[in-house]
Design a protein around this nucleic acid. Structure first.
Length: 612
RNA sequence: GAUCUCGUAGCUCAGCUGGAUAGAGCAUCUGCCUUCUAAGCAGACGGUCAGGGGUUCGAAUCCCUUCGGGAUCACCA
C-alpha cells in the first residue's frame, strides 16, 4: 500500500500509511476518545501533537496541550491535568501522568513495553521490509570521468548513493543501481595525447601503477606540457589566447577528439586501451569500498542518442536554432535562461549526453517509477534544466526524476583543487584508515587466535566503518569539512564505536550454552525501558530517512541505540543475573539490539565484525 | 550583478512539519577494569543559536533586513 508522489516543486514524498509506534498510536486513539467524549472537543487523530517525553521528565509520550487549551479557552496546565485524570480512567496501559507547564507526560506500564518488546522480538529483521513494490527505482551514483582517479568527493557521492539504495530496499522498493561513466571527450584525449608523446608504452603491468592512477598521471603530464608550451609561445610574442590555441599538445588532443568522433581505428584502440586500464583501477577501488552496480552506462553510448533527441525537439518546435547553427531551449518563462543543447559545430555537450542517457534508461527499464541522480549541489542548476528539457520533450518520466543533491567535502583550506594537488585520493585515504585501524587493534591486543588474514579483513572492516560513518553521519545536503591532518576518530560518535557495541552483544550471545528462560518479567529497569523504546523507533527512522533521502538519520539512530545499550550493559548484569527470567529477557534484548544495529549499519554499507 | 545555499559550545556536527531548562562527539578536567571486551561507563566545564526587526500563547526553526562564508548563472564537465 505505498506509492510515489511528486510535486512540481521537485520535492518528492514517498507516502505510506504513515507509520507510528504502537505506543504513540494507542495513546493517540485513547486521547481522541477522551477529548471527544469527555470534553466534546471533536478533534481528529492527526491534529494531536505527540512527542517523545524528554529525558528530564518522567514519562514516555507527551501531549502538547497549548493548541487544545486554546480551543476550549482553558488554562493549559489545568486542562492537561483534567485530560490526564480522564485518561487514567479508561486507558489501561497508562501507569501515571504528570503535567509540566503545557505538557502532559504519560508514562505507560512496564507490561505494555514488555509486550511491545515480545512482539518485536518475534519479528525477524524487525523494521526491514521485504520487497513489496513492483515498480523500479533507478539510483545513479559515482559518475566518474575516466581521466583521473576517484577522490574524497567521490567517496561521499558513492557511499551516499549506495546507502540511499539500501534504504529504499529496506523500505520495500525494487532498486537498480547504475553508474554513468564519462568515458569520452576532450579530457581523456588529453591523457591519451600525453601518453602517446611521453609514455614510452608505459602500462599498468610495466610500471606496477594502478590503471586509473597511470592515466591520471598522464593527465598531469599533459597539463605541465601545455603550460610549458603556452609559456614559450607567449615569450615568443603571442597572446595567451593564441598561445593556448597553438600549443602543439593541445592541438594534438583536439585532433584526437575529432578522430575519435570519426571512429579512427588507431585512436579508438588507444582510447579503449587506456579506458580499460581505468576501469580495472576503478574496480579495485569499488571493491575496497564494498559497493557495486547493477548496470553501467557509458556516455560514448548515449551522446548520439542525445543528439537525436535534440533534433527531434527541434522538429517538434520545442527547441530553436540560432543563426550560427547552435540549438537552444528557451526556459525564460520557467524562470531560467536560454540554454545551449548542441554546439554550433554539431557536437554534443554535457547536457546532450544526459538527455541521451535518460532516454536510454527509460527504454531499458520501462517499469521505472522513479529515478534518482546522486550528484553534487554545484550542479543544481544543470539538473533543473535537464528535467525541464525532458519535460518539453514530452517524456512522462521527467516528472519522476530527482536530483539527490549533496554538499561538497571541503578541506580546511577550502575546496579540493586538482591543480594545486590538494585532492584527497580515495585509495590513499581508505588505505590510511585501514592502517590506523591496524594500529589501534594492535594496541588493544584483543585478537589472539585470529589468523593474519582474519586480522587484515577486520582492520579493513573497522577502517572502512570509520570512513563511511564519518561521511554518512552528516546531513547529505550540507557541505562538510574533512581535515586530513587529524585522522578520523575511532572513539565517540564513530563507526568503530558502533561496531564495538555490536561486538559486545555478540560476545555475550556466544556464551549462551543453556536454554534461555522464556518467562515474562514484570518490572523493567530504566535502562531496559529506554532500550526497548529505542528499538521500537527503528521503523519510523527508516521511513523518515527515506522521505528525506537522508541516511544520516539512520547513522545517528544506530549511534543512539548503541549508547543506550552501553549504558544498559555497563550498569546491569546480563549473564551474571541470578533471576532466570530476567536473565532470559536481557539476553533477548541483547540479541535484538545486535540485530537492529547490524541492519541499520548495513543500510549505510557498514559491516559488523564479531570481535575486535 | 542575479539566483540558490549556509552561519548553533574552542573544533566537527544533531536539533523532524514552530513546543519544556538548545543536544552529542572531539578537546580539557574528575571518578570507574580481581565481575559478561574500558574502542566503554558516570560526571564537570563549555552557548547573546551571526546581528537587528516582525509573526504568536510559544521562534535556533517561519517572514523581512544587515553582515559574513560558499555555490551557480560557459557553445566546460
Amino acid at each position: 500500500m505505498e506509492w510515489l508522489f511528486l510535486f512540481h516543486t521537485s520535492i518528492i514524498y514517498f507516502c505510506h500509511m504513515n507509520y507510528e509506534s504502537n505506543a504513540f498510536h494507542q495513546t493517540r486513539v485513547q486521547l481522541v476518545k477522551v477529548l471527544n467524549a469527555t470534553f466534546k472537543l471533536n478533534v481528529e487523530e492527526e491534529e494531536l501533537q505527540l512527542q517523545l517525553t524528554r529525558k528530564e521528565f518522567e514519562g514516555d509520550v507527551t501531549l502538547v496541550i497549548f493548541p487544545l487549551a486554546k480551543k476550549v479557552g482553558k488554562n493549559p496546565e489545568a486542562f492537561g491535568a483534567e485530560i490526564g485524570s480522564a485518561l487514567q480512567n479508561q486507558f489501561n496501559e497508562l501507569e501515571t501522568f504528570n503535567v509540566v507547564k503545557g505538557f502532559l507526560n504519560l508514562k505507560l506500564k512496564d507490561s505494555f513495553w514488555m509486550n511491545e518488546f515480545l512482539s518485536i522480538h518475534n519479528q525477524a529483521n524487525f523494521g526491514i521490509q521485504q520487497q513489496n513494490s513492483k515498480e523500479r527505482i533507478i539510483v545513479e551514483y559515482s559518475s566518474p570521468n575516466t581521466n583521473k582517479p576517484l577522490h574524497l568527493g567521490h567517496l561521499r557521492n558513492i557511499f551516499l548513493g549506495y546507502s540511499v539504495s539500501e534504504l529504499l530496499k529496506a523500505n520495500g522498493h525494487q532498486v537498480t543501481k547504475v553508474q554513468i561513466i564519462n568515458d569520452r571527450g576532450i579530457h581523456i584525449c588529453k591523457s591519451m595525447m600525453a601518453w602517446k608523446l611521453f609514455g614510452n608504452g608505459e602500462s599498468p603491468e610495466s610500471s606496477g601503477l594502478k590503471g586509473d592512477k597511470l592515466v591520471g598521471k598522464y593527465y598531469v603530464v599533459y597539463d605541465k606540457q601545455f603550460k610549458l608550451e603556452v609559456e614559450q609561445l607567449v615569450a615568443d610574442g603571442l597572446s595567451k589566447e593564441d598561445a593556448e590555441l597553438q600549443s602543439a599538445i593541445a592541438q594534438g588532443a583536439r585532433e584526437m577528439l575529432i578522430k575519435w568522433e570519426q571512429k579512427d581505428e588507431e585512436t579508438l584502440a588507444l582510447w579503449n586501451k587506456m579506458n580499460g586500464w581505468v576501469y580495472d583501477g576503478f574496480q579495485v577501488t569499488y571493491d575496497t569500498m564494498g559497493v557495486d552496480f547493477d548496470k553501467l552506462y557509458y556516455e560514448s553510448d548515449t551522446y548520439l542518442l542525445g543528439k537525436e533527441w535534440v533534433m527531434k525537439g527541434l522538429d517538434r518546435g520545442v527547441f530553436f536554432r540560432k543563426d550560427d547553427g547552435s540549438i537552444w531551449i528557451d526556459l525564460t518563462d520557467e524562470g531560467l535562461d536560454q540554454k545551449v543543447l548542441l554546439r554550433r559545430d554539431g557536437t554534443a555537450m554535457y547536457i546532450t549526453q544526459d538527455i541521451g542517457t535518460a532516454m536510454l534508461r527509460f527504454e531499458d527499464f520501462p517499469d521505472t517509477s522513479f529515478q534518482i541522480y546522486t550528484v553534487g549541489n554545484e550542479q543544481d542548476y544543470h539538473f533543473k534544466v535537464l528535467f525541464k528539457v525532458l519535460k518539453k520533450l514530452g517524456v512522462a518520466q521527467a516528472e519522476r526524476c530527482f536530483h539527490l543533491s549533496y554538499g561538497m567535502v571541503e578541506l580546511p583550506e577550502g575546496k579540493m583543487k586538482s591543480r594545486e594537488g590538494t585532492v584527497v585520493d580515495a585509495d590513499d585515504l581508505m588505505n590510511e584508515m585501514n592502517q590506523v585501524a591496524r594500529q589501534v587493534s594492535e594496541e588493544q591486543g584483543k585478537l589472539e587466535g585470529l589468523s593474519s588474514e582474519e586480522r587484515e579483513a577486520l582492520h579493513k572492516m573497522i577502517g572502512m566503518s570509520a570512513l563511511k560513518y564519518f561521511l554518512l553521519r552528516v546531513d547529505p545536503k550540507k557541505n562538510m569539512l574533512f581535515d586530513p591532518k587529524e585522522s578520523i576518530d575511532f572513539n565517540g560518535n564513530t563507526g568503530p564505536f558502533i561496531q564495538y557495541g555490536y561486538v559486545r552483544t555478540q560476545a555475550i550471545l556466544r556464551k549462551v550454552d543453556f536454554e534461555i528462560d522464556q518467562n515474562p518479567i514484570h518490572d523493567l529497569s530504566p535502562e531496559e525501558r529506554d532500550l526497548i523504546q529505542k528499538i521500537v523507533e527503528f521503523p519510523q527512522v527508516l521511513q523518515d530517512a527515506q522521505k528525506g533521502f537522508n541516511p544520516s538519520l539512520v547513522a545517528v539512530y544506530a549511534y543512539d541505540l548503541v549508547r543506550e545499550f552501553n549504558t544498559f550493559y555497563q550498569n546491569m548484569s546480563i549473564l551474571r543475573e541470578p533471576d532466570a527470567a530476567k536473565k532470559g529477557f536481557r539476553l533477548k534484548l541483547t540479541e535484538k539490539v545486535g540485530e537492529v544495529v547490524k541492519n541499520a549499519m548495513g543500510i549505510l554499507g557498514i559491516q559488523m565484525p564479531n570481535r575486535m
